[in-house]
Design a protein around this nucleic acid. Structure first.
Lengths: 121, 121
DNA sequence: TATGAAAATGACAATCATTTTCATTTATGC
DNA sequence: GCATAAATGAAAATGATTGTCATTTTCATA
């Protein structure tokens, strides 16, 4: 069973707590850290199963890891220029919880992202 | 400019209006239709840009296409057994629209999925 | 009915994220 | 020091998706 390499977590934090495995790896490379892509993937998976990060997906399907404990928010993404705004999701939390309760689900999480064209595009 | 092959749309309908490109392709193969994987991808993309289908992603990131006009709903997915319940998302529509308006975004869409442990697991 | 331009098709190769394999290095207890 | 388990990373494997390109089909018009 592999444990997480602490530099991976540190890098994810430095990246704003929101990045893909590839991005974490490239960031570490650029900063001169000597680490393999495999280790980055393994560490992120380990952080995921320890519930230190969550997993969600970008529009193109690429997996992105988000630090838990970051205030839970969602994103409004421009599908043209990629500009991203963080937004509050209180309404979603309530919706997710009530739906889960209604259907007898426990330990629920959710993903919700909104995409469209920003005012500039 | 490539137009969508009508058999692709027909197959997606037959599949319940909810399937990945690979699934549509395999289904067509099994039913003896002579079509290439490339054409399936192209047709789905074309249906997407014509707004006849939407795109969303499975937990593993694989792209799934959903027929628009199917009543818009979301999913509650058991992360253990994969069991899925369709749920209404009226609250989400409102949230997405108000957030979009607040930040000046137009032509917005959204994805929202809830996952947890179902009552059996 | 011929013809030719444009669109559609599909085999195949390329790309990209992710996972697996496996040999090597590092850490740890004895 | 030594044995053993854990961690690491290079390289290959995998799987979805996209790009390329030669061929076929469609279809309006000569």
């Amino acid at each position: 069973m592999s444990r997480s390499n602490p530099r991976v977590l540190a890098t994810l934090e430095r990246a704003g707590g929101f990045a893909s495995a590839q991005e974490v790896y490239q960031l570490m490379q650029r900063e001169g850290e000597r680490i393999g892509l495999t280790t980055v993937y393994r560490s992120l998976q380990s952080l995921l199963s320890d519930k230190i990060v969550d997993l969600l997906h970008r529009e193109d399907g690429e997996a992105i890891y988000r630090l838990c404990g970051e205030s839970h928010h969602h994103h409004l993404v421009c599908k043209n220029c990629g500009d991203t705004v963080e937004i509050e999701g209180g309404a979603i939390e309530k919706w997710a919880n009530s739906m889960a309760q209604e259907h007898g689900f426990r330990e629920v999480g959710h993903t919700a992202e909104i995409f469209g064209l920003c005012s500039k595009c």
